[in-house]
Measured scan of single mutants.
Amino acid sequence: TEHYTFHTEEQAQRAAKKFKKQGLPVTIHEKNGKFTLQVN
């Protein structure tokens, strides 16, 4: 499991699309105004 932190939801969504294209499951969590992208 890898985690990436982004300052905006837009950045997180863009990164999520790249991972999803590779067939990886992705979840985004919002915490304290930051967005954490979790790749399993």
Rank of each mutant, 00 (worst) to 15 (best):
13 Q>S: 06
10 E>P: 05
19 F>M: 06
30 E>T: 06
18 K>I: 12
7 H>G: 09
38 Q>C: 13
29 H>M: 12
22 Q>W: 11
22 Q>F: 10
26 V>E: 00
31 K>T: 12
30 E>L: 09
1 T>G: 10
7 H>Y: 11
39 V>Y: 05
13 Q>H: 08
38 Q>S: 12
23 G>P: 01
28 I>P: 01
36 T>K: 06
14 R>P: 00
25 P>W: 15
19 F>R: 02
12 A>R: 00
33 G>F: 02
36 T>D: 06
17 K>H: 10
2 E>A: 13
13 Q>Y: 09
12 A>D: 00
26 V>F: 08
25 P>Y: 15
19 F>N: 01
17 K>F: 07
20 K>H: 10
26 V>W: 04
4 Y>H: 06
30 E>R: 08
14 R>L: 12
2 E>C: 12
9 E>L: 15
26 V>N: 02
32 N>H: 06
10 E>L: 09
2 E>Q: 14
28 I>V: 06
10 E>D: 08
32 N>C: 07
13 Q>K: 13
16 A>E: 04
27 T>L: 08
38 Q>H: 12
10 E>M: 08
9 E>A: 12
24 L>I: 14
4 Y>E: 04
32 N>Y: 05
15 A>P: 00
31 K>L: 12
24 L>K: 06
11 Q>C: 06
21 K>F: 07
22 Q>D: 07
17 K>V: 10
8 T>G: 03
18 K>G: 07
25 P>V: 15
30 E>F: 13
12 A>H: 00
28 I>H: 01
20 K>L: 14
8 T>L: 04
1 T>H: 12
1 T>N: 10
17 K>T: 10
12 A>M: 03
26 V>H: 03
29 H>R: 10
6 F>S: 01
13 Q>W: 08
13 Q>I: 13
24 L>E: 02
15 A>G: 03
21 K>Y: 08
9 E>Y: 15
37 L>E: 01
8 T>P: 00
13 Q>T: 06
15 A>I: 06
37 L>T: 02
6 F>K: 00
24 L>A: 04
24 L>V: 11
22 Q>A: 11
14 R>E: 14
27 T>Y: 07
16 A>K: 03
22 Q>V: 08
31 K>A: 12
2 E>G: 12
10 E>R: 09
40 N>P: 07
39 V>N: 02
14 R>F: 07
36 T>I: 15
35 F>T: 02
26 V>L: 03
33 G>P: 01
29 H>P: 00
8 T>W: 03
10 E>Q: 09
37 L>Q: 01
19 F>P: 01
29 H>K: 09
3 H>W: 15
7 H>S: 12
33 G>T: 01
29 H>Y: 14
37 L>F: 04
37 L>K: 00
16 A>W: 05
4 Y>C: 08
21 K>I: 09
38 Q>A: 08
37 L>W: 01
20 K>Y: 10
8 T>I: 03
17 K>C: 09
16 A>H: 03
32 N>E: 08
1 T>Q: 10
5 T>K: 05
28 I>G: 00
2 E>Y: 14
25 P>F: 15
24 L>H: 07
6 F>Y: 10
31 K>S: 12
1 T>F: 12
19 F>D: 01
2 E>D: 10
11 Q>W: 04
36 T>F: 14
4 Y>D: 04
15 A>E: 06
32 N>L: 05
22 Q>S: 06
10 E>F: 06
37 L>Y: 02
31 K>E: 13
15 A>S: 04
24 L>T: 06
39 V>R: 01
39 V>E: 02
4 Y>R: 06
33 G>V: 00
2 E>R: 15
5 T>A: 06
3 H>K: 11
12 A>G: 00
7 H>W: 09
15 A>N: 03
5 T>S: 07
39 V>D: 02
20 K>F: 09
11 Q>Y: 04
21 K>V: 09
3 H>Q: 12
20 K>V: 12
16 A>Q: 04
27 T>S: 09
11 Q>I: 04
30 E>G: 06
8 T>D: 07
7 H>A: 14
23 G>I: 01
34 K>V: 14
8 T>Q: 03
11 Q>L: 08
16 A>D: 01
33 G>E: 03
24 L>P: 01
31 K>P: 00
21 K>R: 09
12 A>Q: 00
27 T>F: 09
7 H>M: 11
38 Q>W: 13
28 I>E: 01
15 A>M: 08
1 T>S: 10
3 H>P: 07
18 K>L: 11
3 H>M: 13
19 F>V: 03
1 T>D: 09
39 V>A: 04
34 K>A: 08
26 V>I: 07
2 E>N: 12
15 A>Q: 05
9 E>N: 07
35 F>A: 02
23 G>N: 05
20 K>N: 08
6 F>M: 02
18 K>F: 14
17 K>A: 14
14 R>D: 10
30 E>D: 05
25 P>Q: 15
18 K>P: 05
39 V>Q: 02
17 K>S: 10
27 T>E: 10
30 E>V: 10
4 Y>Q: 05
11 Q>N: 05
35 F>I: 04
32 N>T: 02
38 Q>G: 04
27 T>W: 07
33 G>H: 03
2 E>K: 14
38 Q>I: 15
32 N>Q: 05
6 F>P: 00
25 P>G: 13
2 E>M: 14
38 Q>K: 07
31 K>H: 14
14 R>W: 07
11 Q>D: 13
14 R>G: 06
5 T>D: 06
6 F>T: 02
3 H>E: 13
37 L>R: 00
38 Q>N: 07
26 V>R: 00
38 Q>E: 14
1 T>P: 11
17 K>R: 11
12 A>V: 05
